[in-house]
């Protein structure tokens, strides 16, 4: 609990040393064909390859650490 959240009230464990992408494009996975789809803010949700209507958000690349108990 505490290890995960050092700067209480602010940004917490932002990825140290990992430069943030400057573009607002986020990449998601298409539920149908599994391809990575970049979606900008305000863009409609559609797979760019197959036009599927569901996208999955990828698991975070940031470190996720929990107390194991």
């Amino acid at each position: 609990m505490s290890s995960e959240y050092t700067n209480a009230g602010t940004v917490g464990d932002r990825s140290y040393g990992q430069p943030q992408q400057q573009s607002a494009t986020m990449h998601y996975l298409c539920a149908e064909c599994g391809v990575k789809v970049g979606i900008n803010k305000g863009e409609p949700i559609r797979c760019k390859e197959c036009g599927h209507r569901i996208l999955y958000k990828q698991r975070t690349r940031r470190m996720v650490q929990f107390e194991a108990r």
């Binding site: 607002a24 996720v64 929990f66």
Partner: peptide, 19 residues
């Protein structure tokens, strides 16, 4: 608000895997 950003990504959606 700053505290939102510990559980929410730049796209405004939650961070997958987060508690």
């Amino acid at each position: 608000r700053g505290e939102w950003l510990s559980t929410v990504d730049e796209d405004g959606l939650p961070v997958v895997g987060k508690k």
